[in-house]
Design a binder for these strands. Structure first.
Lengths: 140, 140
DNA sequence: GTTCCTGCAAAAGCTTTGCAGAAGA
DNA sequence: TCTTCTGCAAAGCTTTTGCAGGAAC
């Protein structure tokens, strides 16, 4: 199924989330943009199409989606939450120069720390920081 | 060398950080308490001994220490930065019930993602979330 | 004596909340 | 029609900043 309004309406419906124009647009945006946007990014981008969209709606909607497991929070930096649609396990690399976040594949099954043998693990996160290839090349 | 005032003075001195009563106390506290405290935790604990200590001094000092690589920030949750003295690589597990953070050992050398082959990696972080052994046992 | 640290208060940023009106089913 | 979502403004929190007085050497 391609990325149509119907598809996103269906996803929300199956999660028991009531439909609205705003919610569908926000879900659509995150599904089609894997740039790990902040709430502010989401707002300013969608405002181009939906000028009345408000910041509080964005925050409320993002939190609704996170509770429904449609989105994932990325908290690499303390002063900004980033969001992504892709729920599949992968790691994140944040470039300390340009700020861009890159995904990378990782086998999460290799983590079975002895110390956590009797713990219930719900969520595994891996993030690296450093300088990305393109900043190294440009010697910025 | 045991954890004496002289030892912490020496550490600061070697990093080129000017000495002060507050700085030594804060470093001492973090070196002796591996509970991953927030800035607020550090403030309220050290205030018992140093009642005039202010929040801004705590923040400024913690940031000074991070720049000097004496401390490490842990950003698992977006709304709270936690600090730890231990620079050695290890993972963190945060219990979603009781909020406690547990350390676990991890071999960071196993992470060599293909996608990051030409990247410069400065920092590797791994954190899990879930329910800890003791909350599972107490069925809280 | 000079440097720069501390502590107070105020400012800054991001996120959440309260509430009236509007949209959705 | 009834529920609940949206958008505005205000509040809440954590962290940062400006500045005068004080500590360190």
């Amino acid at each position: 199924m391609e990325n149509t309004i119907e598809r996103f309406s269906d996803i929300l419906d199956k999660k028991g989330i009531k439909l609205s124009h705003q919610r569908i647009k926000i879900l659509e945006y995150l599904a089609n943009h894997s740039c790990h946007p902040t709430a502010e990014n989401v707002l300013s981008e969608i405002k181009k199409e939906l000028p009345t969209l408000s910041k509080s709606t964005v925050y409320k909607t993002l939190n609704t989606f996170i509770e429904a497991n449609l989105l994932r929070e990325i908290t690499i930096e303390d002063n900004e939450i980033r969001y992504e649609y892709n729920i599949a396990d992968h790691g994140h690399f944040k470039c300390e120069k340009c700020g861009k976040i890159y995904d990378f594949n990782i086998d999460f099954d290799i983590f079975q720390p002895k110390e956590l043998r009797s713990f219930k693990i719900n969520d595994k996160n891996v993030y690296f920081k450093g300088i990305c290839k393109s900043c190294l090349a440009n010697n910025i």
